[in-house]
C-alpha cells in the first residue's frame, strides 16, 4: 500500500520550507547572486538608457535562470549527500511524488527571487516591471525552468563534476522555456498590441505541460541505478 501522493508531496515541500526558513542557505545565496547580477548589468548598460530599457527582460531571465541553478544544485545535494533520497525511496511512496515534492520547493524558491527582482529592477532600470501579465510569465517560466532543473539536478548530483555539469546541461535543455518567456516578456513591456505577443504565453504553457509530463515519466529512471 502506497502513502498517498499528495501526503508525500506536501510532506516534502513542508520539510524543505522549514529547513530553508531556519538556515536560509538557498535563498540567501540566490538573492545575493541576483542582486549582484542586476547591479552589474545595470552598470554595464549605464551609458545607454535605451539599451538598458531594451535589455531589461534579458537581464531578468538570465538572472532568474542562473540564480535558480544555485538553488537547484543545493536542494538536490542536500538529498544526495546525506543519503536522504535513499531514505525517502525506502518508504512506500510513488517516485513521482518525490519529484513533485522537490519541484514545488525549487519552484517556490525561484519564484521568490523573481518576485523580488520585479520591483528592484523597476527602480534600477527605469521601467515598470510590476505588471500582471509579466507576473504570469514569471510564474510559467520559472515553473518550466525548475521542472527541467529538478530532473537534471537529480541526474547530475550523483556525478563528480556536478557543479559544472548542471549549468552546461540546463541552459540548452531549458531553451524552449526561456525563449518564449523572454519573447513574451519583451512583448508585454514594449507596449505593442497584445495580439502581437499573445502566442508566446500559449507556447510557454504547452512546453510546460510537455516538460512536466516528460519529467514525470523519466524521474524513475533517473533515480534508480
Amino acid at each position: 500500500m502506497k502513502t498517498s501522493f499528495l501526503t508525500v508531496v506536501v510532506a516534502i515541500v513542508a520539510k524543505d520550507l522549514r529547513a530553508e526558513l531556519r538556515s536560509r542557505e538557498l535563498i540567501s545565496a540566490m538573492v545575493l547572486f541576483a542582486l549582484l547580477s542586476i547591479l552589474i548589468f545595470s552598470f554595464a548598460l549605464e551609458l545607454n538608457r535605451i539599451a538598458r530599457e531594451e535589455a531589461v527582460t534579458g537581464v531578468l531571465w538570465v538572472t532568474v535562470s542562473f540564480a535558480s541553478i544555485l538553488g537547484l544544485s543545493r536542494s538536490l545535494a542536500m538529498e544526495r549527500d546525506q543519503g536522504n533520497l535513499d531514505a525517502m525511496l525506502m518508504a512506500p511512496v510513488a517516485r513521482q511524488a518525490v519529484f513533485f515534492g522537490k519541484l514545488v520547493g525549487n519552484f517556490i524558491f525561484a519564484l521568490v527571487v523573481g518576485l523580488l527582482l520585479l520591483p528592484l529592477m523597476t527602480v534600477l532600470y527605469n521601467k515598470i516591471l510590476v505588471v500582471p501579465w509579466l507576473l504570469l510569465i514569471l510564474i510559467l517560466g520559472t515553473l518550466g525552468y525548475t521542472t527541467v532543473g529538478t530532473l537534471l539536478a537529480t541526474m547530475t548530483v550523483q556525478t563528480r563534476s556536478r557543479e559544472t555539469l548542471l549549468p552546461i546541461l540546463i541552459l540548452p535543455v531549458a531553451l524552449p522555456v526561456l525563449l518564449p518567456a523572454v519573447r513574451a516578456s519583451t512583448g508585454i513591456l514594449s507596449g505593442v498590441p497584445r495580439a502581437e505577443w499573445i502566442d508566446w504565453p500559449q507556447i510557454l504553457i504547452v512546453i510546460n505541460v510537455i516538460y512536466i509530463v516528460l519529467s514525470y515519466l523519466l524521474f524513475e529512471y533517473v533515480i534508480e541505478d
Partner: peptide
C-alpha cells in the same frame, strides 16, 4: 526493511 548506513540519512537543519 529498515536501512541504517554510515551516512546519517537525516536533515541537519531539522
Amino acid at each position: 526493511i529498515g536501512l541504517v548506513s554510515h551516512k546519517p540519512l537525516l536533515y541537519e537543519n531539522l
